[in-house]
Design a protein around this nucleic acid. Structure first.
Length: 581
DNA sequence: GCCGTTTTCGGCCCGACTGTTTTCAGTCG
């Protein structure tokens, strides 16, 4: 059993213990162990063999026993017992915003509610309000949470969808008879929110049924929705729907273009084709009947790639990320498509958490990975003291970390570790460390982590006050860092950008996937105002790179160039920028 | 359940908010 699954099981055991009303510290030990295991870099079976699991801080003999069972036998008796004592649907109740273990326990034990559907019904029938600790408002909030969950159930974050899609593409490419294979759709366009995964392959007709069969019986498939001659739809174990289409190889570039979208982009491209006297669909170009076209179609060029299709229409190649009907056709006609930022443009980053706060990797591991990525520098920005839930650093711990960084920098002059902090912006807009301490950092990322239910005015004022602090270098996640089912806080980004421009601060891209319209616009406006952008990996485990890809995705859509982005600059330029504060 | 010892058991990150209370429990980050 792999590390990820073991961490999930330990986490689930912690939750089940909470639901059973066990000693909260006991359940916390399981949650804690889950975090620890997912951050362990050594091979677990090696640790089991050498009986050295208990040497890890936080893993005692009890947890070591459970982990050993999971690694060697694939099951744990304690886990099985816990699991059989609570219905699966009860665990799902915990995913609802506002419901924690105590309330869920009451719902299950007193009201016999075992699923979200049953809970919804009970709220609608106003059955909860007589129960101690519940009221009309609680019912209302629960219904709201259920509604929100239903709305986002068919939406998935880019990194999760990407991981699944890459595995499937890899599996398909191993099948004999497949000529080309890619994922298409919103995933290829690097949208932050993905509906479903579209995968396209080309193969000879005789191989189609074999390919579709291998796809529908793939180990990650939970259920098969439909399967036909040329396409199949499945639901993956992580809940994402995945569609596979098989086409002839000659049709492949057209199908890839068609299924990549966006729909709006396709409409523009197809209408452009009509001006050439051609009709474009997912199979290729065809001549428009002369009676239906004012222009007689010229000879259709052969197309073996998407580049050929765009070229045939007099266009520069348009990368998928820009196919959103945001003016890309005009840019392509003028051959003025920008060179997009690639992951390989990154020279370092500034928003990294280590195990000193809530990161999963140690400072040494983070640095080692950054060097492997051929980065030139790494900025360490652990949480400040107010973020106690995330292990925020006291001033003493900050100094200890700074000393460690100095020692590491002395040892290796070819790589630079910058001393930073992700300092909380407190509710009144002041910062969580004294100016004296802030002045000791190479740079300061300032972010909000508390009191999210602010009005736009409150949030904007709070951020602007912090931005004016001379030691702040970068504004962290300006619209909030909450994902999918949560809401961010409203801010007046234009006002914030104006202040950032006046005070020479950089702004982070990371944001809130549900509110990306705001992020796009702010990235464009920031560029106009000359405010530097910083792509946020918010890296807890730097080799994961998921958050980095996500940030790069938004940067590309904002038509940013590498020179606009702080962490694509060479180290000299970065030092100059940081010293300017 | 783990840790760190005053080696046999007490303490285990905290502050703000909400909705329920009538002084606090539960949830969140």
């Amino acid at each position: 059993m792999d590390k990820k699954r073991i961490a999930e099981i330990l986490d689930e055991m912690g939750t089940l213990l909470e639901l059973k009303g066990e000693n909260p510290f006991r359940s916390r030990a399981f949650h804690n162990a889950s975090q620890i295991i997912s951050g362990v870099t050594e091979d677990l079976s090696t640790l089991v063999k050498s009986k050295s699991l208990t040497e890890i801080k936080g893993i005692g003999s009890g947890l070591a026993g459970i982990i050993t069972d999971l690694v060697t036998k694939g099951v744990s008796k304690q886990h099985e017992e816990l699991r059989s004592s609570i219905p699966k649907g009860v665990l799902e109740l915990l995913h609802l915003q506002g419901l924690g273990p105590k309330k869920v326990k009451v719902l299950y034990e007193r009201m016999d509610i075992k699923s979200i559907a049953e809970l919804k019904k009970a709220c609608e029938q106003k059955l909860l309000r007589p129960v101690d600790g519940f009221g009309a408002k609680t019912e209302e909030n629960i219904l709201k949470s259920i509604e929100q969950r239903e709305r986002s159930s068919d939406k998935h974050l880019y990194p999760q969808a990407l991981e699944s899609a890459e595995k499937i593409v890899h599996m398909l490419k191993g099948i004999k008879g497949i000529k080309r294979c890619d994922y298409a759709g919103s995933l290829r366009r690097r949208k932050e929110i993905i509906g479903d995964i579209d995968i396209l392959v080309s193969a000879a007709d005789k191989n189609r049924s074999d390919i579709l069969k291998k796809f529908t019986t793939y180990e990650e498939v939970e259920s098969v929705l439909a399967t036909g001659d040329t396409k199949a739809s499945v639901i993956l174990k992580n809940g994402i729907q995945c569609d596979l289409r098989v086409v002839k190889d000659a049709e492949y570039p057209f199908a890839l273009n068609y299924f990549t979208g966006s729909k709006e982009h396709n409409v523009e491209v197809r209408s452009l084709a009509r001006k050439y006297g051609w009709s474009l669909n997912e199979y290729g170009f065809t001549h428009i009947e002369e009676s239906k076209s004012s222009r007689k179609g010229s000879k259709i060029p052969s197309c073996d790639s998407e580049e050929d299709i765009y070229k045939a229409l007099g266009l520069h190649y348009i990368p998928p990320e820009l196919r959103e009907k945001t003016g890309e056709i005009e840019y392509a006609q003028k051959h003025a498509i920008p060179k997009l930022i690639e992951l390989s443009d990154l020279r370092g980053t500034f928003h990294c958490h280590t195990t000193d706060s809530d990161g999963l990797s140690t400072l040494e591991q983070m640095v080692e990975t950054a060097k492997k990525l051929e980065w030139e520098y790494l900025g360490i920005a652990d949480h400040s003291q107010a973020a106690a839930y995330a292990g925020g650093l006291s001033p003493e711990k900050v100094h200890a970390q700074m000393k460690q960084i100095d020692r590491m920098n002395e040892k290796d002059s070819n790589f630079r570790i910058f001393k930073g902090t992700e300092c909380d912006i407190l509710s009144d807009g002041s910062l969580d460390y004294s100016d004296k301490l802030l002045s000791e950092f190479d740079y300061v990322v300032a972010s909000i982590h508390s009191k999210f239910k602010m009005t736009e005015d409150e949030a904007t004022k709070r951020i602007i006050k912090a931005l004016k602090n001379k030691y702040v270098t970068i504004l962290g996640h300006p619209t909030g860092r909450l994902l999918l089912e949560r809401e961010g806080y409203p801010v007046n980004m234009n006002e914030i950008i104006n202040v950032a421009a006046d005070y020479g601060k950089a702004i982070e891209i990371n944001s809130h996937p549900m509110r990306l319209d705001l992020d796009w616009r702010y990235v464009k406006y920031a560029k106009e105002k000359g405010v530097r952008i910083f792509i946020n990996p918010d890296a807890h485990h730097v080799d994961g790179l998921h958050d980095v890809q996500y940030g790069v995705g938004i940067a590309r859509k904002g038509w940013l160039e590498a020179k606009d982005v702080v962490n694509t600059w060479p180290i000299r330029q970065v030092i100059h920028f940081l010293e300017r504060k």
